[in-house]
């Protein structure tokens, strides 16, 4: 049915298709004029019926059934690997070894959040440092755009791999303590460094101008 062998034909086809850009490999399917006589209609029906396409379809699905080439992933038992750039429910990282919270409470995530779903409370702690006393993400509003993880200067807030958003209480996701890596995991090094949105790229050093230091 490939009809666009010559230049003229190509031009003709283009105009018929409303002057749009159409790939050369496009062709018309069954463009015979609509039958007007009863006999024409009947013969067309007959042709369509007997052309065998119906049986090709039957054959294809039957073949697939017997091939038994199943693609199903049996989800709770088997899970697909989630790419590092997947943006699931947020997590708060700690520093390795010390286990100190990475979040310094700069509030950039709160500022950049385009759905306005992050709120935090900060205060002066007893070591005269800024401390995050409470942090929350309204997951009902969050669109998982990843800006917060990208803007975070401390690589503290990241998108975790946890995409199973089922819980008995919404609060299970949004309190600061729940988001933080458990401290023993951070100390023992079990915490995985986030590799996705906003993480340090491999050639970062080369791109940063060094500031001279006097010692």
């Amino acid at each position: 049915m490939h009809t666009h062998d010559t230049h003229e034909q190509h031009g003709h086809g283009e105009s018929e298709l409303g002057n749009r850009y159409i790939s050369e490999h496009y062709y018309y399917v069954d463009i015979a004029p609509y039958p007007t006589t009863p006999w024409g209609k009947f013969s067309r029906a007959l042709k369509r019926t007997l052309r065998g396409e119906l049986f090709v379809g039957l054959w294809v699905v039957l073949r697939e059934m017997f091939k038994f080439d199943i693609h199903t992933v049996q989800y709770p038992k088997e899970k697909l690997l989630v790419g590092p750039r997947y943006r699931a429910v947020h997590a708060m990282q700690r520093l390795f070894e010390s286990g100190t919270e990475r979040c310094i409470g700069c509030g950039l995530c709160e500022k950049i959040c385009i759905s306005n779903c992050i709120r935090m409370e900060t205060r002066l702690d007893e070591k005269s440092r800024k401390e995050v006393s409470e942090y929350t993400i309204n997951l009902g509003r969050c669109i998982f755009c990843g800006y917060c993880a990208e803007v975070c200067p401390e690589l503290a807030i990241v998108h975790g791999p946890r995409y199973e958003n089922v819980s008995e209480q919404r609060a299970h996701y949004i309190d600061y303590a729940g988001m933080l890596t458990p401290i023993d995991m951070a100390i023992s090094g079990e915490q995985k460094e986030f590799d996705g949105f906003g993480a340090v790229t491999p050639h970062e050093d080369a791109r940063v101008k060094q500031t001279p230091l006097a010692y």
Partner: peptide, 9 residues
């Protein structure tokens, strides 16, 4: 006010 809020908020 120290460390209570960012000015832009």
């Amino acid at each position: 006010f120290q460390y209570r809020s960012n000015a832009w908020e």
